[in-house]
Write a protein that binds this DNA or RNA. Sequence first.
DNA 1: GATGAATGAGGTTTCATTCAT
DNA 2: TATGAATGAAACCTCATTCAT
Lengths: 194, 194, 194, 194
Amino acid sequence: MGRTRIRDIRHEELINATITAVHKRGYAVVTMAEIAAEAGASAASINYYFGSKEKLMEATMRRLLTLLKEAMLERYAEAKTPHDRLMAVIDANFSDRLYTIEQCSIWMQFWANAPYAPALQRLHRINRARVTSHVRAELHALVAPKHRETVREALQSYMDGIWLEAAQSATSLNPSQARRDARDVANLLLASKT
Amino acid sequence: MGRTRIRDIRHEELINATITAVHKRGYAVVTMAEIAAEAGASAASINYYFGSKEKLMEATMRRLLTLLKEAMLERYAEAKTPHDRLMAVIDANFSDRLYTIEQCSIWMQFWANAPYAPALQRLHRINRARVTSHVRAELHALVAPKHRETVREALQSYMDGIWLEAAQSATSLNPSQARRDARDVANLLLASKT
Amino acid sequence: MGRTRIRDIRHEELINATITAVHKRGYAVVTMAEIAAEAGASAASINYYFGSKEKLMEATMRRLLTLLKEAMLERYAEAKTPHDRLMAVIDANFSDRLYTIEQCSIWMQFWANAPYAPALQRLHRINRARVTSHVRAELHALVAPKHRETVREALQSYMDGIWLEAAQSATSLNPSQARRDARDVANLLLASKT
Amino acid sequence: MGRTRIRDIRHEELINATITAVHKRGYAVVTMAEIAAEAGASAASINYYFGSKEKLMEATMRRLLTLLKEAMLERYAEAKTPHDRLMAVIDANFSDRLYTIEQCSIWMQFWANAPYAPALQRLHRINRARVTSHVRAELHALVAPKHRETVREALQSYMDGIWLEAAQSATSLNPSQARRDARDVANLLLASKT
DNA sequence: GATGAATGAGGTTTCATTCAT
DNA sequence: TATGAATGAAACCTCATTCAT
C-alpha cells in the first residue's frame, strides 16, 4: 500500500502538469522541461516515472478518456428513460468539469496527433466506438430506423465540432448554455417529422 | 511579369509539397527537409521563397482557405433559392476535391495548431466568420428566428465534426454519400416542427 | 568477524555480477543498473558497498588478477624443473577456468581501458611485471642469453594475443587444445638452433 | 569532381580527428564534441557528413584497415621469395607509420569494442582472415606441414600481442627495433628443428 | 543493510536557418 | 535561381550519484 503511494501521487501530478502544459504550448511542441516545470519536478523524473515522453502522453490521454467515461456513467446512473440517457450523454460532454477551454484544447491536441501515434489512435478509436454504441442504443427507442444513423452521426459530429471550436475560444466557455444548445439540437433532430 | 513566372511556379510546388508532407507527418513534426524532398527541392530553397517555415505554413493555410472559398463560390453562382444556396455550401464542403483524407487531415492539422500561431488563428477566424455569415443569410428565409442560430451552429459544427473525424479515417472517403448525409441532416433540422 | 560476513558476501556477488555484465555489454558502456540487476540488487547498493562505479571496477580487476595469480601458484607448487615451471605458466594461462570466452573478454575490456584509468593501469603493470619476472627466471636455464629476451617477449605476447583473439570468438573455446598449442610454440622457440 | 572535393576533405579531416580523439579519450567515452573540436568543426557537422557517431566509427575503422592493407601491399610488390614476403608482412605491421602509440592505441580500442558493434566485428574478421591467408600462403614453402599452423598462429598472435601491449606504452616506440625483434622471432620459429 | 526517489550533468541527434557560391 | 555547407540551439534521454527512509 504505502509502497506505491508516492508513485501514484507523482503519476497524478505529472499527468495534470502535462494537461496544462499541452494546453499552453501544443502537443508536439511542448517539452519535457516545460511539463516538469509545471509539476515542480525535474525533466528526468518524467522518464523515471513514465519511461519516455510518448508513454507520458499515452497515460495522459488515457486519463482524459477516463474522465469522460466517468462523467457519462455518473449521469447514466440517474437516467431512467432512453431520452433521459441521451440527455445524460449530452450533459456529460458539456459538464462544468469537461467543457472548459483547457479540456477542449487538450482534447483537440490529442485528437489531431492521433493519426501519427498508434497508441493514441487506438485509444481514440476505442473511445469513439464506445460513445457511438451508447448513443445508438438510446436512439433505438427515439428515432425511426430510416433516420437513426443520420441522427446519431449528426449528434456526435455536432458535439465533436463544438468541442473543437471551443478549443479556439478566446473567452471562457458557458457550459450550461452549451448544454441547452445541445439539448435543443438533439430535440430538433428527434422532433423532425420528415 | 515573366520575371515572377518561376517564382509563382515554385510557390505552387512548395505549397503542394507542404500539404502532402504535413498530411504524412503532422504539422508540428514535419521538417523543412521533408517538405523540400516532397517538392524535389532543397530546404534552403524554401527559405529563399518563403523566408521561414512559419511563413510557408501561413501561405499554405491561405491556399486551403482559397480552395474552400472557390468551391463555394462556384456552386453559389448556379444556386437560385436560399435552400439551393444552403445546399451549395454543403456540397462545397463535401465536394470530390475537398472531402478527401488528405484535405481533411491537413485541415485538422492547421486547425489544431491555430491557437499557437497568431497568423493561422487569424485566418481561421476570418474563414469561420465568412462561412457563418453565408449560412446565417440563407437560413433567414428557411428557419424561424427562435431556432435560427441553433440550426446554424448545429449545421456548421456538424460539418466541422465530419471533417475532423474524416482525418482519422483509415479507408478512403465517399464524398457523394457524405453530401447525401449532410443534406439529410440539414433537412432534418429544417423540417423540425418543434 | 561476523560483522563483515555479509559485506564480504555482497562484495563477491557484485564483483561476479560485474564480470558477467561487463562481458555482456562492454566495460565503458555497462551501467550500474545492469550490474545491479545481474546481482539481483539495486544500483544504490553498489555505491553503498564500493563507493563508486570506478572503485567497483578496480575491485573487479583486482579479482581477475588474483585468479590468474592463484592459477599460477597452484601449478608452480608441483613443478620441479625450469621447464616444468614454464609449462606451469602456460597451463595456468590456458587453464579450464581462465581460458573461457567470458574471462578473455572481460580481460580485454579491462586491458583496453587501462590507459584511461590510472588505477587499472597500475594493476595492469604490476601484473605484467610479475609474469615477466617469472618467465624470465625460468628461461634463464633454458635459452642462451642472446635469444633469451626475444623468446620471453615472443612467449608473453603470444599468450596475450591468443587471449585477446579469444575474446572475439563466436564459439566456445578449447582449453586443452590451447595448452597443447602453446606448449608447441614454447618448444619451437626453445628448440631453435639459430 | 569539384562537387565532392569538399566532402572528401571533410571526411578525411573528421576521420583523422576521430583517430586522435579516440586515442586520447577511449573509444566508448569520446564524445562527438571532442572529436569535432579536434577537427575544428562542430558536432553537428559529424552528423551532416556521417549520419551518426556509429557510422563515423565504422568509417574510421575502415580507414585503419586500409592503411594496414596498403602498408602490406606496398612491401609485397618488392618481395621476391616467400621468406621476403613473410618479412614484408612483418615490416608492414611494424612500419614507422603504423607502429606508433596512437595507431596501436586506437587499434586496441576498436578491437576491444568490436564484440559490441556488429559492423566493427565484421571488419575485424575480414581483416584477420585476409592476413591469415597471406601468412599461411608464405609459410607453405617455409615450414613443414606438421608445424605450419602452429607457426602461423604463433606469429600472428605475437604481432597482435605486441601491438596491444604497445597501446599501454608510456614512452614512444621504436619501430626499427620492433622489426628486428619480430624478424628474430619469425626466424626462431622457422629455424626450429623439432 | 538496502533501496526507491530524485536529479544534475552531459551525450547524441535533429533542425531551421544563414551564407558563399 | 538554387543549394551544399555549416552550425547554434535545443530536445530527449541516460546515468551515476545522493539521500531519506
